[in-house]
Structure formats: structure tokens, C-alpha cells
Amino acid sequence: MAAYMDVLNQITETPFYLLLGACGLLLVFQLYFLLFVYSRLAFYKKPPIKKNTKQLPLSVIICARNEEENLQQNLPKILNQNYHQFEVILVNDFSEDETKWLLKELCTKHSHLKVVEIAEHVRLKHGKKFAVTLGIKAAQYEHLVFTDADCVPQSDQWLQHMADAFDSGEEIILGYSPYTRKPGFLNALIRFETFHTAMSYLSYALKGNAYMGVGRNLGYTKSLFFRGKGFAAHMHILSGDDDLFVNQNATPHNTAICIEPEAQVWSEPKTTFAAYIQQKTRHAGASKAYRPSHRRMLATQLVSAFLFYVLAIVSLVLYPWYWPVIVGMYVLRFVVQLFIYIPTMKKLQVKGLIWRLPFLDIFYYGYICINGFFALYKKDVRWK
């Protein structure tokens, strides 16, 4: 009878050991990303400037469609940057509001503002990449800085910091653009997702494996754009003028980051779940064109975290008497997260989210994985 019970216990406990082994393996993956990737940003310090970048002229490129209100509020803060030589190229992409007249008024006050007008063609539809390309062609300087009409620099030193980042021949500068804080869960989720995305792409850039950038705060050289044939490789994808360009052209030696608080560019977040889902679906659609190694890398990080939560919950439901083992794994991961996330959140100006980390983390991975799956079967949408 005792032998029979031993065999029965082994049979019933075997699935638990399999679940435990799977959770342990997923935990190892998660600890790797935290300790050997994200730690690079957590403990990053800006390197000393090697040359006089104050003499580097810059061209700021902004594409806008029906952005009169945002331009009226934000464009003056870009035009009044405390930098010795720069121009602002505003590409007015078939705006149907009063953008044209606002820009004419601003041009009379700011000689370094240049406007490129795009007229809609009945038989020719275009996305943002066409507008960006025209802006680049109109720029007179080699070093380009990009942002959006709904973005505003935190200080008048934004361009100086971006110029400093073009220090030792770098051709791509990855900046950071947080979203403003507002009440509600959606805002917290958007800011956490933006933080997590930035932590990932900035850390990998520091690791010599840059895979994306964000067009709200991005810089690269004009010669790199034309040498890489612009957006030709992914012109058929309506989105991705920022992340796909970086994915295609970044190397271990031509990319730097710029994350000083004075160099961060703030944006207004979406206010409805529908608008947010549409935005993330568009971004997920562009990621299908990433290099295969980058897709595998990102999928491993996201799916391992998602499955860790799923298997941990399943284990607790099916084998509640083993809860100390599962909870111990979770606590280990959480403590390491705090060790990495706290200094990183301070750098990226979202330290208030640390108190919501347990709930936001599990919701984030669930949402991103599920949305990314369905995005594989959706077509791209227009940028405006």
C-alpha cells in the first residue's frame, strides 16, 4: 500500500515539477534581460564630450497634418532653442485647418523657420515617410533632429544636448520622449509602456545592438539617410519612419543615446483605449519588418515574461500547497526589477510608477503579447 501511494504521489507531482522547471527557465531568461541588458541603462553615465559640438549646425524636421493648435503651442519653444545655428523645417502635409496661415505668421518672426508645403493629389496617397523625405531634402545641414508637432522640449538646451551626442562621428542619436502625467489607469499604462520600450531600445543601443528609435526625439545624419537609400526598403509599410530606419541603419559603432532631462521631449498621451490600441497596433505592424535577430530577441523577452506569469498563476491554482516556491520565484524577480527599475525610472522621469509596478507589469506583458499577436493579421493604417 505504501509503495502504491508513493507511485501515485510521483504521478500527481510530475506535472508540478514540469511547471516548476518551466517557471525556473523563464525566470532565468528574465534575470538575464534585467541584469545583463537593462542594467546598462540603469547605471549609465553620460561620457565626457570629446570635441566642440557647439559649432555643429542642426536641421530640425517636423511633419504636421492638421496640427494648428499643437504648432501654435509648441513650435515657438523649438524655434527659441538656445543654440547658435539651427533651422526648423516644417513640412505641412496637406493640412486642412489654419496651419498654413499660422506658419506664414511665424515665418515673419523667425528667419530660421522654413516651410515645405505638400498638396494632396487625387490619385497619389502618401504616408509620413514621404513628408519626412521632403523635409530631409529641404534641410541645408548634415545633422538632422526629428520631433513631432505635439511634442515640446523640456528645456531650451535640447538641441545642445543632441549636438553633444553627435560627438565621435555618431550617425544616429536615440533620444527619449515621455508622456505627460494625467489621472487614470490608461495614462499610467501608457507611461509605463513608454518607459519599458525606452529602457529596452536604449539599453540595447548601449549594448551595441540598437534596433529602434522614436521619431518624437531622434537624430541622424543626412548622408546616412541617402547612403541607406532612405525609406526605400520599407516604403510599402506606412509606419516605421523612425524605428525601421534605425533598425536598418544602426551599427554597434554609429549609434549613441541622449537622455539627459533637459534633452527629453514631452508628448501628450492618448486619452481613450481605442486611440491607444490603434497606435500600438500600428507600431506592432512596423515591428514585423525588424531584422529576424531583433524579432527573436524581443519576442523572447516579452513572451518569457508573459509565460512566467501564466505558469506561476496556473501552478498556484493547481498546487496551492507549493505556494512558497512559486512566490519565492516571483519575489526574486521583483527584487531584481526594483534594483534595475528604480534608477532607470529616475533617469526617464517616471519614478512615481514604481508603486504600481506589480500590477502594471503583469497587465503590460499580457496586453503587449496579445495585441502583438493580433497585429500580425492587421493592415497598416495611415499616420494621420
Rank of each mutant, 00 (worst) to 15 (best):
Y364N: 06
P153V: 12
F29H: 08
F306H: 11
P252D: 13
I326G: 00
K379R: 11
K378Y: 00
T108R: 14
L311K: 01
Y319V: 03
Q10W: 14
I190K: 02
K347D: 03
K129E: 03
F43A: 12
E69D: 07
K125S: 10
T197Y: 15
L202K: 12
L332F: 00
D97C: 10
A163S: 05
L302K: 10
H196L: 14
P343D: 15
V152E: 12
S304Y: 02
L106T: 15
S59C: 15
T251D: 10
V115S: 06
T194Y: 04
R282H: 03
L35Q: 00
L189C: 04
F225A: 07
E69T: 13
T251Q: 07
F245H: 03
Y17P: 02
R295V: 06
Y367W: 05
P153C: 14
D150E: 14
E120H: 14
A233Q: 09
F94H: 04
T180S: 09
V145G: 12
K351W: 07
K384P: 01
K125P: 00
V145C: 08
Y365W: 05
I62M: 10
A138D: 07
Y367T: 14
I354G: 01
Y32C: 01
D156W: 04
A139T: 09
H143M: 09
L71N: 11
A289I: 10
G328N: 00
K207L: 15
E170Q: 15
P48V: 12
E171Y: 05
F130V: 03
V381H: 04
V115K: 05
K346P: 00
L298G: 03
Y32E: 02
F146S: 13
L20Y: 13
F86I: 15
L102F: 01
V88N: 07
I11P: 01
I257F: 08
